[in-house]
């Protein structure tokens, strides 16, 4: 009897544990924000391709051979090469302070499926940087291939629509260079990189959030100052006016 009970208990425990495992396996985690656009892999092991000028595949780039580092992980990532880390942080600081000029017009010219306005001289207006991250190789053979004129082809998920104006640029040799990009119309874009380094995606600036309810101590201070100055000026004006009237009398 004892053995039967033990077996039943053991069986029940196994069922409970399996249920837990199955239950937990059914669990779908909550979505969270992404620090950088995710790369859409070519397969379960291949993240991108090395291609020639005809876009023919020369080599596959496996997932461990590429590291993408967002700004938020620039200081903590152990995978990003040190030189790339410094470059990413330097570029981020400069972009935040508006200290860099970017070739939006040239980048838009290389961006296929981007809607072009009739007046193409204005198409680069109001472009803002939406994403900044570093792409670095971890395998030696790929940089050598790219030095021979081949390009790295990667597809990123930006969540954009086919009509969105988006372009891509990379920072190499001390300047920003445009990247050939194709908007796939399904939220993703495919880019052809001659070099890997800090990468930006830029798009048209749309409206900024309305200031419907901001409590800003700065604005209160400003209006307070205006109030004080106008009160003083009002008082002085009244005094002068009264003196003038008295003099006229």
């Amino acid at each position: 009897m004892k053995r039967i009970l033990s077996l039943i208990t053991l069986f029940a425990l196994c069922v409970a544990l399996l249920s837990c495992a199955a239950f937990a396996e059914d669990f779908v985690p909550s979505i969270g924000g992404k620090d950088h656009p995710s790369i859409v892999p070519e397969s379960s092991t291949v993240i991108g391709h090395i291609v020639n000028s005809d876009n023919a595949v020369i080599d596959e780039v496996e997932k461990p051979c590429i590291v993408v580092t967002p700004v938020s992980e620039a200081n903590t990532s152990k995978d990003i090469p040190e030189a790339a880390r410094e470059e990413l942080l330097k570029v981020y600081a400069a972009l935040k302070n508006g200290e860099m000029d970017l070739p939006y017009e040239e980048a838009l010219a290389l961006s296929k499926s981007a809607p072009r306005t009739e007046n193409s001289a204005n198409s680069a207006e109001h472009m803002v940087i939406r994403d900044l991250f570093d792409v670095s190789f971890l395998c030696e053979e790929h940089p050598e291939m790219m030095a021979n004129g081949y390009k790295l082809r990667l597809t990123f998920d930006l969540g954009i629509s086919s009509g969105d104006t988006v372009c891509c640029m990379v920072y190499t040799d001390g300047k920003w260079s445009p990247v050939e990009m194709f908007n796939n119309g399904n939220g993703t874009v495919t880019c052809l990189f001659s070099k890997v380094c800090p990468v930006v995606f830029a798009s048209k600036q749309t409206e900024t959030p309305p200031d419907t309810g901001d409590y800003s101590s700065d604005s209160i201070a400003l209006w307070g100052a205006v109030m004080a100055v106008s009160a003083v000026a009002f008082g002085v004006a009244i005094v002068i006016y009264r003196k003038k009237v008295a003099k006229a009398d």
Binding site: K34, L132, G159, A202, S203, K204, Q205, T206, E207
Partner: peptide
């Protein structure tokens, strides 16, 4: 969802879950 770029300016939108709006 509005996407905020590097300088805090809105750089287009992304069609996504409401939850990620705060991640920008």
């Amino acid at each position: 969802i509005p996407v905020l770029g590097i300088n805090g300016k809105q750089a287009g939108t992304v069609y996504a879950q409401l939850a990620v709006s705060h991640n920008y």
